[in-house]
Amino acid sequence: MTGHRTIRETEKAVRAKLGGTGTPVQYAQMAAVSNIYRAAAAVRQHFENSVLRGAELTWTSFVVLYVVWIWGETETRHVAEEAGISKGTLTGVARTLMGRGLVERRGHPDDGRLVLLRLTDEGERLMGEVFPAFNAEEAFVTEGLSDEECETLADLLRRIVVRTEEEGDGRRRRLLGGAPPVPRRSGRRPKRSA
């Protein structure tokens, strides 16, 4: 259970609220997407409060380390893409990891505009220590599923990711009438001039 209501209570309340709006609602699809988000948030919170806390890592910093650990020295733009974060976010995370002596950055030997990240020996050591504990928590959170159900779930989620990656840009363009997306805002209001 996340929050103070169960998933089933929330789904029931949503049906009650939206049932009379006059707009047809695709409940199964809404529940699928909502539960992807809730599952991801619950898993992330569990991992950050357990195995990652002891290593003084956030979810994002672990994912960055993991990407570089798996792929080896990699261009920062590819690390950001693989980690699902912006290049600006990666800059901050990489600075923190560099300050801890876990990653190093260097210019690309063939293109000075590009930057490469690699794990240091200490980063390699930390990942060798943290990953088995991380994987044990992956087993814990999926304990109620059989191996076959885990494979089915992974396949279903993979299909959602592939659809979104392959068709998402075209869908966004159609929804926005061909206009580019409005730049993201932090949520803060602009400061007023004096």
Rank of each mutant, 00 (worst) to 15 (best):
T6R: 11
T6D: 09
T10R: 12
T10N: 15
K12P: 04
K12H: 15
A13M: 13
A13N: 11
V14L: 15
A16H: 09
L18M: 15
L18D: 14
L18N: 15
G19I: 11
G19F: 03
T23N: 05
A28T: 12
Q29R: 13
M30R: 09
A31Y: 14
S34A: 14
N35Y: 08
A41Y: 07
F47G: 00
F47P: 04
E48Y: 06
N49L: 13
V51A: 03
L52Q: 10
L52F: 13
E56H: 13
L57A: 06
L57D: 07
W59Q: 04
T60M: 14
S61P: 02
F62S: 01
V63Q: 09
L65R: 09
Y66W: 09
Y66C: 09
Y66A: 14
V68T: 03
W71F: 12
G72D: 10
E75M: 11
T76N: 12
T76W: 11
R77F: 12
H78C: 03
G84D: 06
G84P: 02
I85E: 09
K87N: 14
G88E: 10
T89I: 06
T91A: 14
G92W: 04
T96H: 02
M98T: 15
M98A: 15
G101M: 01
L102E: 03
V103W: 09
E104I: 08
R105C: 02
R105K: 15
R105D: 09
R106K: 15
H108W: 10
L116F: 02
R118H: 01
T120P: 01
T120D: 03
D121P: 01
D121S: 11
D121L: 03
E124S: 05
E124F: 01
E124H: 03
E124I: 07
R125H: 10
L126G: 06
M127S: 01
G128S: 02
G128A: 02
V130M: 12
F131R: 09
F131H: 05
P132G: 02
F140E: 10
F140A: 07
V141D: 00
T142N: 12
G144E: 06
L145N: 05
E148N: 08
E149L: 12
C150E: 14
T152Q: 11
L153G: 03
L156Y: 05
L156S: 10
L157Q: 03
L157K: 04
L157A: 05
V162C: 05
E166F: 11
G168M: 01
G168W: 00
D169E: 08
D169H: 07
R171E: 10
L175C: 02
G178Q: 08
A179V: 06
A179P: 08
P180T: 04
P180G: 01
P180W: 00
P181N: 00
P183M: 00
R184D: 02
R184L: 03
R192M: 13
R192D: 14
R192S: 15
